Amino acid sequence: MNDEIEFVRLFREHYTGVRRFIERRVSDREAAADLTMECFEIAWRKRTPSEPFGLPWLYRTARNLIANEYRRRDREEALWTHIEHQVRSLAGEPESEMTRRLVEAVRALPVRDREILWLTYWEELSAAEVAVVMSLSPGSVWT
């Protein structure tokens, strides 16, 4: 029980500082909130009552999470570049209003819907296969 009390104290004392630390580096408030909570989740899992850690440990963990976020963003941007190239080559034009609108429409989709499209059209999976990957029913994939 004392371990939980100490962790709550750590959380209350450092949450705002860790959140601001992350916000200054990722420039996306929602992502910063998620990364902050992930940082404290890791702290909870790795806590050792005999070796308590404080703000420097939290900052180091946050830096690692920020680096992972940057890598994820780089991969996502590379994927978008590839998709845009594929759309342009299918359209047979280097750049057109239709191509631009199509790319914007796909970017505007919720993440889950985009993933279903990518798995279906770029990975050429069936609805049943996409359902397994996404932990959905085939009917949900079709919808």
Rank of each mutant, 00 (worst) to 15 (best):
Arg45Trp: 15
Thr61Gly: 00
Leu65Asn: 12
Arg45Gly: 08
Glu77Thr: 11
Val133Arg: 14
Glu69Asn: 07
Leu102Arg: 08
Trp118Glu: 11
Met98Lys: 11
Glu6Asn: 13
Asp113Cys: 10
Ile116Tyr: 04
Thr48Arg: 10
Phe53Thr: 07
Val132His: 06
Asp113Pro: 03
Val18Lys: 03
Ile22Tyr: 03
Arg73Asp: 06
Trp57Asp: 08
Asp74Cys: 04
Met134Gly: 01
Val26Trp: 00
Arg63Met: 13
Pro94Arg: 08
Tyr121Gly: 00
Arg20Ile: 02
Lys46Arg: 15
Ala108Glu: 15
Ala108Arg: 12
Pro110Gly: 13
Glu123Lys: 15
Asp3Tyr: 00
Asn64Glu: 10
Thr99Lys: 05
Leu55Tyr: 15
Met37Tyr: 15
Glu30Thr: 07
Glu51Gly: 12
Asp28Asn: 15
Glu95Arg: 12
Val87Lys: 03
Met37Asp: 14
Arg63Glu: 12
Ala43Gln: 08
Gly54Tyr: 09
Tyr121Ala: 06
Thr61Leu: 05
Val26Ile: 03
Leu102Glu: 07
Arg101Val: 06
Glu95Thr: 07
Tyr121Pro: 02
Leu35Phe: 02
Ser135Glu: 15
Asp3His: 08
Tyr70Gln: 07
His82Ala: 15
Ala127Ile: 02
Trp57Leu: 02
Glu76Arg: 13
Tyr121Leu: 14
Met1Cys: 08
Leu125Phe: 01
Gly92Ser: 04
Thr48Asn: 13
Asp28Met: 00
Arg71Pro: 01
Ile42Ser: 13
Asp34Tyr: 07
Leu55Phe: 15
Pro49Ala: 14
Asp34Gly: 10
Arg9Met: 07
Leu90Glu: 10
Glu51Met: 14
Pro94Cys: 04
Thr48Val: 14
Glu41Leu: 12
Ala33Cys: 10
Asp34Lys: 10
Asn68Trp: 03
Ala91Val: 00
Glu38Ala: 11
Arg20Cys: 01
Thr16Trp: 00
Ile116Asp: 03
His82Tyr: 09
Gly139Asp: 10
Arg20Met: 05
Ile83Glu: 05
Leu136Pro: 06
Ile66His: 02
Val111Asn: 11
Pro110Phe: 00
Arg88Phe: 00
Leu117Ile: 09
Ala32Tyr: 03
Tyr15Met: 02
Arg29Leu: 11
Ser50Val: 13
Arg107Val: 05
Ala91Asn: 05
Ile42Gln: 14
Pro49Gly: 13
Ala32Pro: 01
Glu93Trp: 04
Val8Cys: 12
Ser126Thr: 09
Asn64Gly: 11
Arg19Ser: 07
Thr61Tyr: 03
Phe7Lys: 06
Arg9Asn: 10
Ser27Gly: 05
Leu125His: 05
Arg19Leu: 13
